[in-house]
Structures are given as structure tokens and as C-alpha cells.
Nucleic acid binder design. Structure first.
Lengths: 257, 257
DNA sequence: ACAAAAGTGTTCTATGTACACCCATGT
DNA sequence: ACATGGGTGTACATAGAACACTTTTGT
């Protein structure tokens, strides 16, 4: 009967689980999709060219092994981010954890993926130790999927090492859905303490990959941020080409979230 | 200068990262917050009473070690879910990964947490091997936080083993935000192929912990599901106390998501 | 004077919410 | 007949999108 099956199944589970150490422990890495906007307001991602096997010479998002027992996952991600970009204290959020047994040919590697949003002005790319090269790639969408362009280097999704194409796709898609109800976009501003509505709108346009209506965007920003006290009108303007633009300052509610 | 600092920092990273194996590999577990609705339409969670150290005799959500190399994280979670509840093929979604170095007193244990939604009619609780007891607890909110009630057993958030209070809090909060734009609620129905609007409304009320207006709920359901072809009106009714209620059937778009 | 970008205001539609009221059943 | 839940319809407030128009600068 059913009950009997379950009992014997329990026994099997017992044997399987009793001594967890008989199962190989996986390695754990944190891999980070680091996004920024370039000078022409296009979305860029940082890729490194792997100097080591596996996937030697292939492009990948930066990552590194967790120093188990010495740091949390968030700390590991922050360490990797800092070592690749020189920045600290920027938006860094856990995305998803990938753990197919075959995602790394060497051994089982669990990857805890993070997303980072970094203003270009703060970003100092350093080719890490395992990388022969590290650079920003423009993210371009076409029918086949996502392409990454840096000068005359063109990398397609399928060129990426490991399952990094999946991680990048998820990071971008999450970024797009989050931008409508989270404050993520502000983390790409050059200066959260002094920005114009147009600057913020450009970030939204870049992430959503479509044009937005400025009057409507302004209305929403004034209602959701200024009127509700999450940002203040600095009562100063900055000149560019047309009419001077008012400056605003984001009030940090509670660090990052 | 800055450039020099960074170079020496790179060197340090090199040494730290070069041989990943010199760092202890963490254990990886999947822990599952399993929710259901009881016969009085209250939200319940499955807790087990730990038979082993650490946290012996404390209540915890079920979990188990990943069999690294033999299964994916999703498969591990499904295995644990099945061994604790006897069910298969129900809503199971990765929630978040927890990895503070001190969350387990034994050694570093990374926990990949999942949420499961199971209709009570399918649920056959089996006290697992590491558990002296396994049972459903009603989830009650009060000013101090969340309490778990099962008969005369009352467990508070702080009584839970490990950092399971944090996991459960996040699971509930994610459930609440997701229910407005994802199809999660349907997974708590006794039968997705034959349900009434009131049944679905009760699930939403339970998860949101507040009463909803039936006429408005119906209007939204008809617009978002029936009119857009994601559910169909079965053109049959079921009798209970008042006017007979129409039956609907959810069309599976693409398995679970 | 003109281009360019910032900023104002109006209109239309969709959605969320409150609520008054009718309908079909069991008892 | 009446209580109980199912189901219909109306009204109002708010949010999003489209767009016409004005303002203030640089050249």
C-alpha cells in the first residue's frame, strides 16, 4: 500500500541523508552582473576574459570563490565587486542561485549571482588575476538574443562562459521589472545628491530600452518622490543647452534596498 | 598613489583566490517553507521538531543537504518536499540564499531557501528521519512578530532553529507581494480544474490577511483570467448554502511559474 | 530669431475601491 | 419566508499614456 511505500522511502532517505559528509561538498562562488551607463547613455555590462581553464579565453561575468567561514555571501560579492571595479558602497543585490550539477565541468559549483549598479564615474576597471582583460560591453538586443559590443569585439550570449548567459538574461529582466517599483535607477546616477529629472529619465529609458514621455515622467517623480518627501527640490538649476534644469536630491531612506 | 594601492590589492586578491581549495567548502542545504490552507482557511506552515543537534528539540522548516553532483538545487528541494509531504509536482520556487558564516554552529552551511504551496488535500505529512515530529502550524501575526500555533503548542519566531525565522518572514512577505501579479494563489486550490471565485478569493484573503470585496474580486478575475483566456467558465455550478456558484478551470499556460 | 531642452496643463482610458441591490438556493 | 452566499451594476478616485503648448536658455 501507499503507506508502506512511504515508509521504505523514508528509510532510503535516512540512509541517503544520515551522513551528509559522504556527499561531496560543492564549491560556492559569487558571480556579479555589473551594469553601468556609458557616456552615450547606453547600458553596459562588465565582462572579463578568462585567463584560466575552464572556458579559457571566453568572456564571463566576474566572480570568485566564497571564502567559507570567513565571510557572508554578501561580503564575498562585495569583495569581488571591489577587486574588479575598485568601488565600494554601491547597489549590490542577490539575484538568484544557480546549481545545475553540470554548470561547471570541473566539479559541482554553486553560483550565487548578484547584480551591481555602478555609476561610470566611480568605476575603475582592473583586469583581475584570472582575467587577461576586463572591459565594458554595450548591451544590444536583437532577434537572436543579446549581444555585447566593445569596440570591434562582438560577443553573443552563447559565447559566454558557463551558464552566464542565463544569469545575465535574468539580471536584465529583473532590472527591468524592478525599476518600476524599486529605487534601483538612482544607483546609476553620477550623483544622487544633485541630479535632474532628465538624467533620471535617461536611466529609465536605457533600462527599459524605450523612450519615455518627459512631462509624464516628471509628474510621476514629483508625486512619488518629492511630494512624499523621499527627494527634495534643491531650488537650484543647472545650464546645458535649452532651459536650465532644476536639481533634486534623493534622501537616503535606509542605505540601499 | 591610488594606482599603486590597487596593484598591491590585486596581488593580495591573487594570493587569496589562487587556490580556492585552500578554503573550506561549505555544506549546502535546501530548506523549504511549505505553506497550505487548513480547513478553516487559515495559512499554515509545516514545521518539524528537530531530533538531532544542533537545535535539538527546536522547531524548524524542513530541509536537507544537497547531494552535490547528483542533483540540481531544484531537484534537491523537490526531493526534500516529497520526503516530508509526499507530494510532487506542486509549486516550488527558489526564494533566497542565506549564507552568514555563523548561521549554523557546526560549520559553514549555505541554505538555498525555497517556498512551496501545497493544497491540504494532497498533503501527507511524514515525520522525517531527523524529526521527532512534523506538523502544520497556523500562522498568527501579532505586535511582536509571527507566532505558530498547533493545538496547544505555541512557537514564536525566536523559537525557530537557525535563521529560519528570517526565512519564514521573507517567504511570507514575498508571497504577499507576488500574489498580486503572479498566479501563485491557484496552487493552493484543491482543484485547479474546478474552483469557484469565492474559493480563490479566500486564498487571497488568507495570504493578504485582510478581507476583500467579492464583486470587485470577481470583476478582476473575469477580466484578467477569463476574458484573456487564461481560465474558462465551465458553465456548471456547485451548490452550498446560498446561490449556486459557477465553476472555473485554470488553463495551465506553461507548467508552473 | 531660432533651436533645444525644461516645464505646464488637458484629455482620455484603465484600474482599484466602495457599495447598493438583485438572484437562487437550503432550511 | 428568510438567511446565506453568489452575482450585477453604478459611482468615484487615482494612475498611466498621449499630446498641445509655454518658458528659458545658448547660439
Amino acid at each position: 500500500m501507499k503507506q508502506q511505500d512511504q515508509t521504505s522511502k523514508e528509510e532510503r532517505d535516512f540512509l541517503e541523508n544520515y551522513d551528509a559528509s559522504k556527499y561531496e561538498r560543492p564549491s560556492v562562488t559569487t558571480d556579479i552582473a555589473i551594469f553601468t551607463l556609458d557616456s552615450s547613455d547606453e547600458l553596459n555590462i562588465l565582462l572579463i576574459n578568462r585567463g584560466d581553464f575552464p572556458y579559457k579565453n571566453r568572456w564571463a561575468i566576474p566572480g570568485g570563490f566564497l571564502h567559507a567561514g570567513m565571510e557572508s555571501l554578501d561580503e564575498a560579492a562585495a569583495r569581488v565587486l571591489k577587486s574588479e571595479t575598485g568601488v565600494d558602497n554601491v547597489f549590490l543585490k542577490q539575484l538568484y542561485t544557480f546549481g545545475s550539477p553540470k554548470r561547471d565541468p570541473r566539479t559541482t559549483v554553486i553560483s550565487v549571482a548578484y547584480t551591481a549598479l555602478v555609476p561610470k564615474s566611480l568605476l575603475h576597471i582592473q583586469s583581475g588575476i584570472h582575467a587577461k582583460d576586463a572591459r565594458l560591453f554595450k548591451i544590444k538586443y536583437d532577434v537572436d538574443g543579446i549581444n555585447f559590443i566593445s569596440g570591434n569585439i562582438k560577443v553573443t550570449e552563447d559565447d559566454l562562459a558557463f551558464d552566464h548567459a542565463e544569469i545575465v538574461r535574468m539580471a536584465i529582466s529583473r532590472l527591468r521589472t524592478r525599476i518600476d517599483y524599486e529605487d534601483d535607477a538612482f544607483n546609476l546616477l553620477k550623483d544622487k545628491n544633485e541630479f535632474t529629472i532628465s538624467e533620471l529619465k535617461k536611466i529609465h529609458e536605457t533600462i527599459k530600452n524605450r523612450a519615455l514621455d518627459l512631462p509624464n515622467f516628471r509628474k510621476t517623480f514629483l508625486r512619488d518622490y518629492v511630494a512624499s518627501g523621499r527627494a527634495i527640490d534643491l531650488d537650484r538649476t543647472v545650464n546645458s543647452k535649452g532651459k536650465p534644469a532644476r536639481l533634486y536630491k534623493l534622501l537616503e531612506v535606509n542605505g540601499h534596498e
